[in-house]
């Protein structure tokens, strides 16, 4: 187990994290578009995309919440070696990773402060698959409309109602990643 924890990080961190960040930036700036990332092989049950997002965005200055099946010894060891992010309760977390059911209730996550809305959590939601089919998304970053298979709509509509407060979300499945910032309006279904 110890040996496994040492594997699966970036081999060439500066360049690989730069390429991965550009994909994540495009995903977040164009909600609903599905991008591919590579470079990390985190231990199960984390997906490649979730592992890449953690390597690119988290470090010892960000509190990380592991939810549900993501909260296992293999992932904790991997995070400790490659990232060093302190693990935290959902209420205190800057980042959280896990399947949608395990992140519930999402209303516990930080939504920022009225004068500093940026002090909010980013959720990395592990999905089985990502497809451009589902509720319509509109808002900043979206030309006409896009569609994404969200796990549900009510939570994201409630989150949008808090704007400019709210959490931001990355969806990951395999090596695919999509973004849903708090600014996106989600169609009610």
């Amino acid at each position: 187990m110890i040996a496994d924890a040492l594997e699966g990080g970036f081999a060439e961190a500066p360049v690989q994290s730069a390429r991965a960040f550009r994909e994540i930036l495009e995903a977040m700036a164009r909600p609903g578009t599905i991008r591919r990332v590579q470079g990390a092989t985190p231990p199960a049950p984390l997906s490649i995309a979730a592992g890449v997002a953690l390597l690119v965005l988290t470090d010892p200055t960000t509190r990380l919440h592991l939810a549900g099946e993501a909260d296992c010894p293999a992932v904790r060891d991997w995070v400790a070696f490659h990232i060093g992010a302190p693990l935290a309760k959902a209420e205190d977390a800057d980042f959280a990773v896990g399947p949608w059911e395990a992140l519930q209730p999402v209303s516990r996550f930080r939504i920022g402060q009225p004068d500093y809305p940026d002090r909010s959590a980013t959720l990395i939601v592990e999905c089985d698959r990502l497809v451009n089919h589902g509720p319509a998304l509109t808002g900043p970053g979206i030309g006409a409309a896009t569609w994404l298979n969200l796990p549900e709509t009510a939570a994201f509509r409630a989150n949008r109602a808090l704007f400019p407060l709210g959490f931001d979300t990355l969806f990951t499945a395999g090596d695919r990643i999509a973004g849903l910032p708090r600014s996106t309006r989600v169609e009610a279904i």
Partner: peptide, 25 residues
């Protein structure tokens, strides 16, 4: 690569993503 150390770039990247999420803030 690109002059800045990785920890600094992560910090800037997090700020950029939050800026994208709250346009104009």
């Amino acid at each position: 690569f690109a002059y800045l150390d990785e920890q600094t770039k992560r910090m800037i990247r997090r700020a950029i993503l939050k800026g994208i999420a709250v346009p104009g803030c």
